[in-house]
Computed example of a mutant assay.
Amino acid sequence: MQANTTSRTDKLGSGWMVMAALFFALMGGLVKKAGQDFDFGFYELVFWRTVFAVVLLGALAWMRRERFATPHWGAHLSRGVAGTLGVLLFFYGITHLPLATAVTLNYTSALFLALLSWLFLKEKIAPTMWLALLLGFAGIVVLLRPTFAAGQEWAGLIGLAAGLCAGWAYLQVRELAQLGEPGWRVVFYFSVVATLISAVLATWDGWQPLSWQSAPYVLGIGATATIAQLCLTRAYKVGRKLVVAALSYLTVVFSTLVGVWWLGDAIHWQEVVGMGIIIASGIWGAARR
């Protein structure tokens, strides 16, 4: 009853996902600019993205007197490692591919989630859902053709692997939800694991010193990512699930605009077609589910 009341009183409703998509796109742009202009490695960019969430979520949970203890440490660790790998590969893709291409490849997580649910959870996939999956993977082939033609096969495959790891992480998030873990704790412990792993890798790879010029970028990465996550959570709480799922693909559209107008990315027509196919398959799959 309370959730329905909240949905009626929140005028933005599903529109929170539009805000989330915008801030996720801005985060991607900041990641790419920080890598290009200040030579930050993707390890330390992941660190700055996640340490912000650790501090903010930890402080909010402490002020609300939430319980940090959990009986599911192993599940949190497994989800944290899978999610961290996904973010590391995603940030690698952002720093080596056009922003829109990297973001679209990361959004293949919905396709991989369906396949992983079928393989490991033995969930049935309807014939129409199989068609949506085949359409989505056809879109991946179209999207990656210009990338492969430009000799960026490795970056393209890593970007696709980011989508696979994200799908695997989402599968584990679903299992944690079924165990009764609150959403804030899932995000918090993922951020803790990601911060620790990325800190170790960045120390091994070498840190770039912060300056007055670079600090706004790394702080902006953490701030935009956290705001986007909060908007996304709000959207799924008060919005219509199908509408929210469809609007989430605006991240690809906003990332394309950010990439072309701010970062100077060149987008091939085949990449635009591939993005459109992947978006259509994702929305179709969400509708069928």
Score class of each variant (00 low, 15 high):
282 G>W: 10
211 S>W: 09
265 D>N: 12
32 K>I: 07
96 H>N: 15
196 L>P: 06
97 L>A: 01
148 F>M: 00
205 D>C: 06
72 H>T: 04
119 L>V: 14
199 A>Y: 07
152 Q>T: 03
289 R>N: 13
91 F>P: 06
98 P>E: 13
18 V>L: 13
63 M>E: 01
137 F>V: 02
181 E>W: 01
282 G>M: 07
80 G>W: 12
287 A>Q: 14
199 A>L: 15
197 I>E: 10
225 A>P: 02
35 G>D: 02
80 G>C: 09
165 C>M: 14
105 L>S: 09
258 V>F: 03
14 S>G: 14
287 A>F: 13
218 V>D: 04
220 G>R: 09
97 L>K: 01
274 G>Y: 06
52 F>H: 10
272 V>A: 15
28 G>I: 10
255 S>N: 05
222 G>Y: 12
17 M>D: 12
46 V>N: 15
8 R>C: 04
9 T>D: 05
227 I>V: 14
112 F>M: 12
219 L>G: 03
53 A>E: 08
3 A>F: 04
121 L>Y: 08
131 L>N: 00
234 R>M: 03
25 A>L: 09
66 E>P: 04
81 V>E: 01
286 A>H: 10
221 I>F: 05
260 V>C: 05
109 S>A: 08
129 M>F: 04
19 M>V: 14
77 L>R: 00
198 S>T: 09
209 P>A: 14
244 V>I: 01
219 L>C: 01
11 K>Q: 13
16 W>T: 08
175 E>F: 00
24 F>D: 06
288 R>Q: 15
164 L>E: 01
173 V>Q: 01
227 I>L: 14
12 L>S: 07
286 A>M: 12
27 M>E: 11
168 W>E: 05
132 A>Q: 00
268 H>Q: 09
10 D>R: 03
101 T>M: 02
51 V>H: 05
20 A>D: 11
179 L>I: 00
116 L>N: 03
131 L>M: 05
263 L>V: 04
132 A>N: 00
250 L>I: 10
239 G>Y: 08
192 V>Q: 07
185 R>H: 01
212 W>G: 14
100 A>S: 15
194 A>P: 06
22 L>R: 05
116 L>I: 15
265 D>Q: 11
232 L>N: 10
192 V>I: 14
145 R>Y: 02
52 F>K: 08
202 A>P: 13
21 A>H: 10
260 V>Q: 06
87 V>N: 02
251 T>H: 10
240 R>Q: 15
266 A>K: 05
219 L>F: 03
54 V>A: 02
147 T>E: 06
96 H>L: 05
40 F>D: 10
221 I>V: 13
84 T>L: 04
209 P>K: 12
147 T>C: 08
202 A>G: 12
112 F>P: 12
199 A>S: 08
141 V>G: 02
205 D>S: 14
282 G>D: 07
40 F>C: 09
95 T>Y: 04
113 L>Y: 00
129 M>D: 12
55 V>R: 08
163 G>V: 06
1 M>K: 11
181 E>N: 01
44 E>N: 05
74 G>A: 11
266 A>E: 06
174 R>P: 06
126 A>K: 14
20 A>L: 10
180 G>A: 04
72 H>Y: 15
283 I>M: 05
16 W>L: 10
174 R>C: 07
39 D>M: 04
165 C>F: 15
58 G>I: 08
78 S>C: 06
232 L>K: 02
223 A>H: 00
77 L>I: 06
234 R>G: 01
149 A>D: 15
218 V>Y: 02
165 C>A: 15
278 I>G: 11
